[in-house]
Design a protein around this nucleic acid. Structure first.
Lengths: 342, 342
DNA sequence: TGCTCAATTTTACGCGCGTAAAAAAAGAAT
DNA sequence: ATTCTTTTTTTACGCGCGTAAAATTGAGCA
């Protein structure tokens, strides 16, 4: 490899004894050239290391191979895992993913879309902030660029939505909690995205279905510092004596992690064993849920199916395909993960 | 804005009544054109939304404005915070950062460097995996692209290193622990990067300095699943009856989080209060350290100074500057964060 | 051998911009 | 008004590649 540096495709074509347009064709799709030609190019590729100039390529292609990935917060392990998964799938499919994090900010989310326009992506996979999102601007973006939403939906925006089904996952947990002890109350903060709302609705529905009186504890707080909110407000609520049930279902794991810390600090033993006076459950199977004290009972989202589904949908769309009505909203089921906290 | 879409700079130049090369000059540096000209361009910019084509620009510029950021693992909140910080500083300076995560893999780290070559970055900020890194290849990369290392050093590689000083931060913690209770043992896993080694050395040094016998507990495990290793090996060590001290200093917070979980599960109360039989301290001030049970006493790294220093150094380098000998290795001090665990 | 079709080469153009050099214009100083 | 200086325009070229159309080549086959 790399006997000498090659400057451009012209030079490389000469070395391999093939014309430049043929080399260009090869790089766009190796199988589109005759086998003998392919072998000559690949032989040259072994001797010289040449890669087509990314900028020249993208300037001239009708459509780049770029796919943008937008998540609310890469610091959140759920999204960092999703992004990593999706990136892998896209690379395998021959695309160039680039991931951006909104850091929970509405303005930043829009800025990312502006940046994305600059790289002229073939498509975008986006987990929007949700309620905080600038709907109009995102809608405008989706008109220009094929976009698939995941995790959190904005009704009527984007070509499709892939996520998990709160009306399956939450009742699953509620049913378990009711079966194994006191029916849960629901611990939530003001919803930053539609998921949170749906989870509450699903909780209410499930409780009624089981013939129990639902209790929603809504605490204050905004932004994406869920642990902090769960902790601070958890401390306050506990101090004021006031959880309506000794079983608490949190709207997500990060909130639960905060609440666990609050309970610990308040001297409340949390868990399923007899010496415990409180049970706490979460939702999402956050990577740290295994290491909380006690370990957190939760519902795992189907990471793999969601990322696989999102990628398949956007690639189909990019390839000129359309989304069938039945695929406009695809929801996967959650899986109960029983640990020590509930 | 956007009365009509503009296709290229030629067209935009016509609209603003200025020649295309002048517009080009403006976009490279607004202050390089006469004030009256600038105003005409900016007036046009208000009416039409035009942005120079990224690919055409980068193809023709001698040097792009791209700066690569490479971290071992964006899922680790420490690195995701660092990356975010650095990105902000670079954007403010007029550069385009793009962040890549090695995901703890030696091969992936090298692949990232290959990818980086493709975007022809002006410079790179890299937190290498450390011992797992392919030193030769990284060295080769640094020969072609100005590169500054941060967080974890590879001796002799890169133009400079910015990090924190374990020989300040660790003794700070050791001194505190000795002053407030039983002298600590050191809980560590096989070092994935030089930092871990240095922290152990610093521990040994500090203990001797204070006239105590050091005890290093090295547990098994590889990879970057620190919490998992701390948990599993913590369980094992506790079960075998065997921590040499009731105060444990972990080589980082993530390991400590795992150990805390192990202690909890083993029924050991951890903390500084009298009813506790064990103290655990960490290092780094991981964002979750506030929410462990009990909250984790640790040493905070100087995020801001490290990212600011890294950015200043690389930009200086990119601007053709050189690194003075005194700046080849810059270390910042850590700050003791006292919480409930030790 | 001659034919057909697909693969390849040739030729030619364009993408949108940076950049350098020379010419022209504008502004400042005399 | 003249000269000098700075800024802008003009002109011209090149970056490295995609792509389309026409010309050529080669393989497979009768």
């Amino acid at each position: 490899m790399s006997e000498r540096k090659i400057r451009n495709m012209e030079e490389f074509a000469a070395k391999s004894g093939v014309s430049r347009p043929t080399v260009s064709k090869y790089f766009n799709d190796p199988s589109s050239v005759r086998k003998s030609t392919r072998e000559r190019i690949e032989a040259a590729l072994e001797r010289y290391d040449f890669r087509p100039n990314l900028y020249a390529v993208n300037q001239n292609r009708r459509l780049t191979k770029n796919i943008g990935i937008v998540v609310p917060n890469v610091a959140d392990p759920f999204f960092s895992e999703m992004a990593r998964n999706i990136e892998g799938l896209l690379i395998d499919a021959g695309y160039s993913p680039s991931t951006f994090s909104s850091h929970g900010s509405r303005d930043h989310e829009i800025e990312i879309l502006e940046t994305l326009r600059a790289i002229r992506p073939a498509g975008v996979l986006m987990a929007p902030l949700g309620r905080a999102s600038d709907r109009a601007k995102i809608e405008g973006f989706c008109k220009d660029v094929p976009t698939v939403l995941f995790d959190s939906n904005i009704e009527g925006v984007g070509a499709a939505f892939i996520g998990s089904d709160p009306f399956q996952s939450v009742p699953l947990m509620v049913e378990y909690l009711c079966r194994s002890g006191e029916p849960p109350c629901f611990f939530e903060m003001p919803p930053v995205n539609p998921n949170a709302n749906k989870r509450r609705e699903a909780y209410l529905w499930a409780m009624q279905d089981l013939g129990h009186a639902p209790h929603v504890v809504r605490v204050e707080g905004s932004g994406w510092d869920f642990e902090d909110i769960g902790y601070r407000e958890g401390l306050r609520v506990i101090k004021e004596g006031g959880l309506p049930s000794r079983t608490v279902l949190c709207s997500n794991d990060r909130l639960a992690i905060g609440l666990l810390a609050a309970a610990y600090e308040s001297g409340i033993r949390v868990g399923i064993t007899e010496d415990c006076s409180m049970r706490i459950a979460g939702h999402d199977d956050h990577p740290f849920a295994r290491f909380t004290c006690p370990s957190l009972t939760t519902v795992a989202q189907d990471y793999k199916s969601i990322s696989k589904g999102s990628v398949e949908t956007i690639l189909n769309l990019v390839d000129g395909g359309t989304v069938r009505d039945s695929e406009r909203e695809v929801l996967f089921e959650g899986r109960l993960v029983m640990r020590a906290s509930a």
